[in-house]
Simulated scan of single mutants.
Amino acid sequence: MSELNPAGIGAPEVVELDDTHFAMIREAVAFDKIGELFDRAYPALYGYLPEHGIEIAGPAAGLSFGAPTDVIDLGVAVPVVAPFAADGDIQLFTVPATRAVRVKVQGPYDQLPQAYNLIRAWTGEQGHICRGVAWEQYVNDPSTISDPAELLSEVFWPIEN
């Protein structure tokens, strides 16, 4: 990763994205229960997808629906190659092709809120409007990383203008 500030957060950049399909388990959860949701949802997703012939398209993700209050409406997700029929708790969510702001983050996941704040400030300065669902992708697998400073993530937020 290049051009990271001292906190490990990169400069915002506008990217063009194709349709992005996610298999997800979505729940409104208190902030102190997010880890429990991830610990429950990822094994369910990673077990379900190959069993049903659904091809994974990229690293694990977390989708944020709406502004957090005392809870966050969160989709624990895995990008998939193509749409599929929802099944029980496992839903399909598609972000249509769009322009988005992307910020790269190196370091612990507790830095991710700073990346969202940076995107909000930067888009306002640039005359863009954030819209829709924002998400983060966890580029490397945290179960294989011993030092949180080595974690790599990307935050995406669709924009207008």
Rank of each mutant, 00 (worst) to 15 (best):
A57N: 03
A57F: 03
G58C: 03
P59Q: 08
P59E: 08
A60W: 00
A60E: 02
A61E: 00
A61D: 00
A61C: 04
G62A: 13
G62T: 02
S64K: 12
S64M: 14
F65L: 11
F65N: 05
F65G: 03
F65P: 05
F65Y: 14
G66D: 05
A67M: 15
A67C: 11
A67Q: 15
P68Q: 10
P68Y: 09
D70T: 15
D70G: 11
V71H: 14
V71N: 13
V71F: 11
V71P: 07
V71A: 13
I72V: 15
I72L: 14
D73G: 08
D73T: 10
D73E: 11
D73V: 08
D73K: 07
D73Y: 07
L74K: 12
V76Q: 01
V76L: 03
V76D: 00
V76I: 11
V76Y: 01
V76M: 03
V76G: 00
A77Y: 00
A77S: 08
A77T: 01
A77P: 01
V78G: 01
V78I: 11
V78K: 00
P79A: 05
V80P: 00
V80M: 04
V80R: 02
V80T: 05
V81F: 07
A82W: 05
A82R: 13
A82S: 12
P83I: 05
F84Q: 03
F84G: 03
A85E: 14
A85G: 10
A85Q: 13
A85H: 08
A85K: 12
A86E: 11
A86H: 04
A86M: 06
A86D: 10
D87S: 10
D87K: 08
D87F: 05
D87A: 10
D87W: 06
D89F: 07
D89W: 05
I90V: 09
I90S: 01
Q91F: 06
L92F: 02
L92S: 02
L92C: 01
L92A: 02
F93M: 09
F93Y: 15
F93I: 04
T94Q: 01
T94K: 06
T94P: 01
T94M: 08
T94S: 09
V95L: 12
V95W: 02
P96N: 07
P96K: 10
A97R: 08
A97K: 06
A97W: 02
A97N: 06
T98A: 10
T98N: 09
T98S: 10
R99Q: 14
R99C: 04
R99W: 05
A100L: 03
A100D: 01
V101I: 15
V101H: 02
R102G: 04
V103Q: 09
V103G: 06
V103C: 08
K104L: 13
K104F: 13
K104C: 12
K104R: 15
K104S: 14
V105Y: 05
V105I: 12
Q106T: 14
Q106V: 13
Q106A: 11
G107V: 05
G107E: 04
G107Y: 09
G107K: 09
P108Q: 11
P108N: 13
P108A: 15
Y109F: 10
Y109N: 11
Y109S: 09
Y109K: 06
D110C: 08
D110E: 14
D110G: 07
D110V: 10
D110W: 09
Q111T: 14
Q111E: 12
Q111I: 12
Q111H: 15
Q111K: 15
L112D: 01
L112E: 04
L112V: 13
L112H: 04
L112W: 03
